[in-house]
Design a protein around this nucleic acid. Structure first.
Lengths: 347, 347
DNA sequence: CTGAAAGCGCTTACAG
DNA sequence: CTGAAAGCGCTTACAG
């Protein structure tokens, strides 16, 4: 149906191998012959069959991108975007996949192998999915890049944003405004991400010489279905004395807190400063506009692809330098943070 | 490197063709032989090479998904999700692509052809990109499904939400609350989507027996970079008399209007009802929570895949029934709409 | 510079 | 029920 190299060769009365050489720029082909071949290919509407090409060269041509199928898709698409760009540069394409249940993971891996993907990126997995994946992939010959999700064992590639520095910037910003009484509104109780962020928060607070009030470390839920977040926010707002600022572990949490605070009659940001994390698309549109941290999502996708490729090409890389990629975070100051109403007396 | 059918055959002392038959469940293979083959395949860790398979069967195995690379990615991922599910059911996979400039489109199509994709879904294209694509694809043998984006000529498939009905539900809801003075906050001035939505708005208003105030039809921008939206919102709020409700053509527009209205000192929703369109992930987290319209994005992806496949299988379809798929919209009432403060006297 | 051969891993008629 | 052949569209040594 589609035009083949053989047809071009036949048209020109030459061998089809010559056509292959000319079209790929390999070997020595007389310039005139090459031009003729290229012109004929174009005239006939020839497109190389990458399927055949991939098979014979044995080079895999796809990179898998797997994530948990969720509504919280804002950053996923940005990472995917970065990955697509980087992949394009290497003539690779991205095979988009998702899973809903743990039992789906097996099939995803199976299909990756069948299509001979060069590697797999995973992101936004549940903690259990990370473990399932790590287990399944162990005896398989396929490099995996973890994006954001902390792997439980050293992986081929681990790309993430420097959340510690992100929190550092937030705390610096808040203390510069005069805040001392700072609470932390975190995600799910049993979540590796929550734990990591809480650890960071404690350390950053301590480094800043601030007291960490244990009661002010509340946990809601990364998902938005449950009323957990509203409850946690209300609990946080009921404290006497109330914190003057709340660092939230994610933009959605921050938006919920803003709403609950306003509904409780607080004037924001004067009576309560709130910060987010991630810089989701609509976070800048809340009122007050959310001060948050950009996590370089687009770069994450790009770096994941590049590191994955360096895994494959087996270029020796200084130990630990590949699988631990820390990307910069950047504070975005908007309107949800302000000096506290009554600045506590300096120590 | 990877295990092949030939190796399995060699292991068992049979022909490799028999292995193929057994593994694909084709032809007549003695049950005992089949079991042996399957067992050996498993033991050796065989995975069929889909690349080779696709080449020989000639059946394309991928569906392209192309969108404009933008930050407004919330609904894109949902459509992609639906498409992945539907594609999986047909053993197809999704090749994710994007473009940034019009000149990228050509290359995207080229790569689709080279990989012999069975079809292409496009979404979130700029109007010019739609035209470029339509032009380029004309002489190509590749079915295209337009998702949301109105094609300028009848296309193979066109899947979209029933925005007219969505607006109808909004207006019904507002009038039931007692609103008569309703404005319309639209996207870009020169955008096919804006035009379509404005036409719908006018008609729906007329059907409801409401007066369309031309001055109250304001346009901002689908993008968030420009200050156009803030300006348009302020203009809208400055009208005397002021509308009691504003129908916004998208969730981001609605969130901007909410903010500007609150900053202007209005109490929402009592002094101004605002509605959105799309139901983005964070729209429900604004304060007041946005009343908006669900556009069945996930279903869009699914339907696009299914229609594309029916194009390919060339099953005769009643004229116009394929390329014009209208998906249901559903009003989601949250907190940004309420009865107007002073209900106008009934006619 | 050009041609003829072999092979990538698979499937699909065609004989036995 | 099983085997041997041909072919999918391409690339890559290997001769000339």
């Amino acid at each position: 149906m589609a035009v083949t190299q053989k047809q071009i060769a036949h048209e020109l009365g030459i061998s089809h191998q010559l056509v292959s050489f000319a079209l790929n720029g390999n070997g020595n082909v007389a310039p005139k012959t090459r031009d003729e071949i290229v012109a004929t290919a174009e005239r006939l509407g020839y497109r190389r069959n990458e399927l055949a090409r991939a098979m014979v060269t044995g080079k895999s041509s796809a990179l898998g991108f797997l994530s948990f199928e969720s509504d919280q898709s804002d950053h996923l698409m940005r990472v995917l975007s970065g990955a697509i760009d980087a992949a394009n540069e290497h003539q690779l394409f991205i095979k988009a996949m998702h899973y809903r249940e743990l039992s789906d993971i097996r099939g995803v891996l199976e299909r990756c192998l069948e299509w001979r993907v060069a590697g797999l990126m995973v992101m936004n997995l549940t903690d259990e999915a990370v473990e399932t994946l790590e287990h399944e992939v162990k005896q398989l010959d396929m490099p995996v890049a973890f994006i954001e999700n902390p792997p439980s064992h050293p992986a081929d590639v681990w790309v993430r944003s420097d959340d510690y520095h992100g929190l550092q910037q937030i705390i610096e910003h808040l203390t510069a405004l005069g805040h001392r009484e700072i609470a932390f509104f975190n995600g799910n109780a049993e979540s590796r991400l929550s734990e990591k962020r809480e650890t960071h928060f404690r350390r950053v607070m301590e480094c800043a010489g601030l007291f960490v009030n244990e009661a002010w470390l509340v946990r809601g839920s990364w998902g938005l279905e449950s009323p957990l977040n509203e409850e946690a926010a209300q609990k946080l707002l009921a404290f006497q004395p109330r914190p003057t600022a709340v660092v939230c572990s994610g933009d959605p949490l921050a938006m919920i807190l803003i709403r609950e605070a306003q509904n409780a009659g607080l004037k924001l940001p004067q009576e309560l400063s709130v910060t987010g994390f991630a810089d989701f698309y609509l976070a800048g549109l809340s009122n007050p506009a959310l001060t948050t941290v950009d996590q370089s999502f687009r770069v994450m996708g790009r770096v994941a692809v590049e590191q994955l490729l360096s895994c494959i090409s087996a270029t020796p890389v200084p130990n630990g330098q590949r699988w631990n990629q820390l990307l910069p975070t950047r504070l975005i100051v908007r309107a949800s943070t302000a000096p506290p109403l009554c600045v506590p007396t300096p120590l």
